[in-house]
Design a binder for these strands. Structure first.
Lengths: 351, 351
DNA sequence: CCGATGTACTGTATCGATCCAGAACTGGAT
DNA sequence: ATCCAGTTCTGGATCGATACAGTACATCGG
């Protein structure tokens, strides 16, 4: 049988509590006794207080969960997500807290069960659609939740960290307008209920399910509206997924149109890099023949001279972790809007 | 105060156990009573059995830990690691088990504390040097441990999943020999104690700390030895890290030598892709002017026509998770050697 | 009407650790 | 010797849930 505090206590001839103190509150007992306890513990093969017993008693699990949809691999594949996770994990580590990955493959019973039975002190919702039942289940746990996928319209208690998506794309739109672009295409994911790549017709972006896509498109609409370009003139193209090849595939639907748009915007840098690939294959030069812009400023963006909107993913992850680890009571500081900055590089030029 | 099983039991007028059964063993009570219980639970704001209490009682945490060094971001950055994590996470998910990331930034007290206090049912050691004290701490927990970073010479209880590294590189070496290559360079990481990029002189690969690098170099040595090329004729170059730019940087030390090696091998595909970048910048063609080969067969390898050794990272992750979730008692099946296969593509050609 | 079988539920012990009130001891001042 | 403050240690209560033995009651065949 595995040794417990009691086993060690009996062996040394002291009480359970004293052994506990030897590990967790060294100032509560004499150094000699402590040494003796640790020595016998080692001899008995006792490796220190069991985390589960401790968690139960302390009411603290020592971990935070990250809800990911639809697959874990997304979190490991998208460069922006990677940076986010990095910021989150590093902050958690500093607070001696683990990070539990909870992939929500489907919004099914299994997923609910996983959320309900995760030993964690809080949930971070990242790139999960707001309507997932698993999110409701997380709420039901009564633990702190910070949201970074969509603006929590539903619950006043929700914590949020992100950027002003619409303002960011508005700035990008204004940049393109200033360069004289009037005929533009936008490539994004989840613009359509289906997974198919290709042009989509949206009467308005206002009803899109994906928060990020919706807000970013709204920003574009507003920027171009100011310049007299109405929404219906903006070409919107759905990409099958957020990857470079899928961006390239979607870009074909923009570049092979006549007349060709003078600017193509990817709603993420990964998609925009795909657009650059498509340009390359057609012998077109970014910034001259067609302007290209992205979103996020991932590491590869700079080396490809991609104009983009910079938002710090690690910072976002860091803030998310801090909000979870001690949630401020002040409502204002529970809603963190990080700065975003337009970075102009060579991939955009005059129309 | 947060409601518990008891609260609900009192409200309904049944025993704690029955409420527990309502959640965990629905077949043990009548559907009507169950419905009534769940209804009052909801009314009281009880969200279901507390995971910590359950873990303690069941003796199962419902999570497995992945030990990562030196940073989490490595796991999220290296394509091979990403695939590994994917396989692991997917398998864990199917078994209703979470994946806890435990970054071991340094081998310090904090790291030890994290390992000691993680509520998990097992540890997976991935890309962590074997001498880390945190690994000893994990061992001390008495939980199943599966190792995928290095061959566990130390402990007979160790589980392992991986490939026969030496045999795999031997096959790659033989391929190059058959093509007539006699003058080759190998680029790898951790070939040197320092982090500096550049050529290193190793009397023999046998004493390298990094298990993977050591075994792979041994395979090369043996393959070329059979063809009469002695170890000292093989150029070994250290890359500062496992990334494409760092591979490119290291490649310069091979390509700018005179005489130029006829083949350059990257000990990972990421490094090999960097070699291809370096070739491109010099106007050299892979497979004609210089042969290039890699290791792993990451997704990008195929699109770049890279000759490589294929090993399935997801499979490796899957097996790791399965070993952890129910460790076989039979010693033979605790040591899983997965197949690796040489994939010949256009990046290698006659010398 | 008796004993056998089965269902539905209860009560208690247990998991391993931490908290806390207080006991026992220590040493120094009075 | 007495008192007191401080330190060191103890034992019981507690965290929230689950396992399991055991009870009450209904059903059923003979």
């Amino acid at each position: 049988m595995r040794p417990t505090l009691q086993t060690v206590a009996d062996a040394v001839g002291v009480s359970r509590s004293t052994v506990s103190n030897a590990y967790s509150r060294p100032d509560q007992l004499s150094p000699q006794l402590r040494k003796k306890i640790l020595r016998t513990a080692k001899k008995l093969g006792y490796a220190g207080p069991d985390p589960m017993g401790r968690s139960l008693r302390r009411g603290r699990a020592g971990a935070i969960a990250v809800l990911l949809a639809p697959t874990v691999s997304y979190a490991f594949t998208d460069p922006y997500a990677v940076q986010f996770m990095k910021g989150l994990a590093e902050t958690a580590e500093r607070r001696e807290t683990g990070v539990l990955l909870v992939p929500l493959k489907d919004d099914d019973e299994d997923a609910l069960a996983t959320v309900q039975s995760a030993s964690v002190d809080g949930f971070c919702v990242y790139c999960v659609p707001g309507w997932f039942r698993a999110i409701k289940a997380a709420w039901a746990r009564g633990l702190p939740i910070v949201n970074s996928s969509y603006e929590g319209e539903d619950d006043a208690d929700a914590m949020f960290v992100g950027i002003d998506e619409a303002a960011a794309t508005r700035a990008l739109g204004q940049h393109l307008i200033a360069l004289g672009h009037r005929h533009v295409a936008v490539i994004g994911t989840q613009l359509d209920s289906g997974q198919l790549a290709g042009p989509v017709t949206l009467e308005t972006p206002d009803h899109l399910e994906s928060y990020v896509s919706r807000e970013r498109l709204r920003g574009f609409r507003d920027a171009f509206a100011e310049a007299g370009v109405v929404w219906s003139e903006i070409v919107t193209i759905n990409a099958a997924g957020n990857s470079r090849p899928e961006g390239e595939q979607a870009a074909a639907y923009a570049l092979d149109r006549t007349p060709r748009p003078t600017a193509v915007v990817g709603l993420s840098d990964v998609l925009a890099l795909g657009v650059l690939d498509a340009l390359g294959k057609r012998g077109l030069r970014a910034g001259h023949d067609v302007s290209v812009a992205g979103f996020d400023d991932i590491p590869d963006a700079a080396s490809h001279q991609l104009t983009t909107v910079r938002q710090s993913a690690t910072e976002r992850g860091r803030v998310a972790a801090e909000l979870l680890l001690d949630p401020p009571s002040d409502p204002a500081s529970r809603h963190v809007v990080l700065p975003a900055e337009l970075i102009v590089r060579a991939s955009t030029g005059p129309a």
